[in-house]
Amino acid sequence: MAINYDKMLSIDRRIVYLIIALAIAVPTIHPLNLPVTVTPDVRGVFDEIEKLEPGTPILISVDYEPSTTPEMDPMSKAVILHCLLRGLKVIGISYLIYGSGIGEDLFNEVEKIYEEATGKKLVYGRDYCYLGYKPGDYAMIIGLGEDFKGTCKQDNYGKSVYELEILKPIKTLRDFPLMIDLHDDSYINYWIIYGNERTGIKIGSCCTAVMATGMYPFWRAGQITGIVGGLKGGSEYEKLVNEKYNLKRRLKQARAGMDAQSVIHIVIILFMLLGNFAFIMKTKQSKKQ
């Protein structure tokens, strides 16, 4: 029976979509629990946080949109939780208007996880705070470098930043040895240009997988301390936090997503191989004819 390679090459897109949907759904429902290995890119962010003494302030910028929350949330939670477990004073902010709600939910959820994991209570305004969206684009970052509180004025809930105990020792961005940018676009460029270059604040990048490849030149040049990219980076970070702090409730959201990602990668590779097989066979066939 002759195989119709033309048909194979122009396979109906809907068949591809159906297989992809199944490849995502099945491992999400039945996790495979595949092992995770930690890469140096992720360790770069983790170790930089570990180097900080308890009580040191750290800035976390929530710069992603609702559409990327499934990919960004797991790593964001792991990083914020890590900072809190380390005893750092976590100050959240956002460059994006969407960050206001996303950051609020994120901090609330991490607070719950922290309390469940350690049995200790966090105090808003003393252990952490969320300043929310601050308008002004890059001018906002420049402003933070000049006068942190004057630029922020209020936190996400309308409270004056001058009343927050956690911000008492903070004058400018220079008072933060490190910041972590949780981003799904190139907003980190602004933090590098106007934050790192002007004030010397170190920056760690937590981004979507698509963005991660673009972060390598910055990492190699020493402009960022490390990269936590996509669900893969998130799962590695979860592993590091789980192991270091021996959590009662282990973090596993990103790892669960990695199972689906593993299957989908294999399916796409199979598609690519199938397409190439059909292409080569068709070329051979037409040469014979």
Binding site: I11, R13, V16, Y17, I19, I20, A21, I24, E65, P66, S67, T68, T69, P70, G101, I264, V267, I268, F271, M272, L274, G275, N276, F279, I280
Partner: peptide, 29 residues
């Protein structure tokens, strides 16, 4: 939160399907 955000996530998630179909169509040796 309940309409715009899920809709935006849905559009973004279509990317997985489009990556597969684009890879199938375009990655030819």
């Amino acid at each position: 939160e309940n309409v715009t955000t899920p809709l935006a996530s849905t559009v973004f998630s279509i990317l997985a399907f489009y990556i597969a179909s684009a890879a199938y169509r375009a990655f030819r040796a």
